[in-house]
């Protein structure tokens, strides 16, 4: 190979290397632009999903006229101490709490020791095969409150609590249970029309904005009550907390 040929080969190689480097640079720039674009689009999709959800909730909101605490709870009893109960109708531990503490709660109300406020939240919608049982049950409870039968309905709904990851009780069954405690056609209409379902979402949002995360959450005069080991309080814990708050 002559010197001239060698030089030409070397020059060709340098040109090729430069071309490859150029290509790499171009590809890097445009793929990076594409990545940023994809992430921006994903963010926008998230934002749109979020705002359409917000809009749906506010436009459909019907607050039961009997609700207290910024329209997010139903109150029973007239005692000075306030007991707030945040419960999800799908939550088995709420059911256990209700069973264990029913007598104490009934006593607090009937002896006017406390005002008990029920907040039916819906944080477990994903456990009912897409039928959103938590929301439907909470909405139905609002309709029951409007019909003057909240506690009766609350009790029978827990007595018939569906398993988590089942489809929950269907609306027909919810209406049947409502009728069994004396609720009428207004109740059935509200359940079928999902009148208070957006309200259930609002109750849940209020619950979250107060930095409560799990159900049941039991709050006495603004202070969360827990068992000695930090779990769900039992009837004795509740009694003690109310007595302490009463002074």
């Amino acid at each position: 190979m002559s010197k001239g040929q060698r030089d030409r080969t070397a020059a060709k190689r340098i040109v090729e290397q430069q071309k490859a480097a150029d290509r790499r640079r171009t590809v890097t720039i445009w793929t990076s632009v594409a990545v940023v674009a994809v992430l921006v689009v994903a963010g926008v999709i998230g934002w749109v999903a979020f705002s359409s959800q917000e809009k749906k909730n506010t436009s459909a909101l019907t607050t039961p006229s009997v609700a207290v605490d910024e329209g997010t709870a139903f109150a029973f009893g007239t005692g000075k101490v306030t007991v707030d109960l945040y419960e999800d109708f799908m939550c088995p531990i709420c059911n256990e709490f209700e069973n264990a503490s029913a007598t104490v709660i009934d006593g607090l109300i009937s002896q006017n020791k406390a005002t008990v406020r029920y907040h039916p939240v819906a944080i477990l919608d994903r456990f009912s095969n897409g039928t959103e049982y938590s929301t439907r049950a909470a909405g139905a409870a609002a309709a029951a409150a409007q019909g003057g039968k909240f506690r009766e309905f609350h009790k029978i709904l827990y007595a018939n609590q569906p398993e988590e990851n089942s489809s929950g009780l269907d609306n027909a069954k919810i209406i049947e249970l409502g009728k069994s405690v004396g609720l009428g056609d207004d109740f059935a209409t509200a359940v079928n029309n999902k009148t208070y379902d957006s309200w259930a979402t609002k109750v849940t949002e209020t619950f979250s904005s107060r930095n409560y995360n799990g159900t049941p959450t039991v709050v006495v005069n603004g202070k969360q009550v827990q068992s000695a080991n930090g779990g769900v309080p039992g009837p004795d814990d509740l009694t003690k907390a109310v007595e302490a708050a009463a002074g």
Binding site: V38, A42, G43, W47, E54
Partner: peptide, 17 residues
């Protein structure tokens, strides 16, 4: 809570992307 709601809504889409 309002900020959390926005983050919670956007984050899954970003993760999938």
């Amino acid at each position: 809570y309002d900020t959390s709601k926005v983050i919670g809504a956007v984050q899954p889409f970003l993760e999938i992307a």
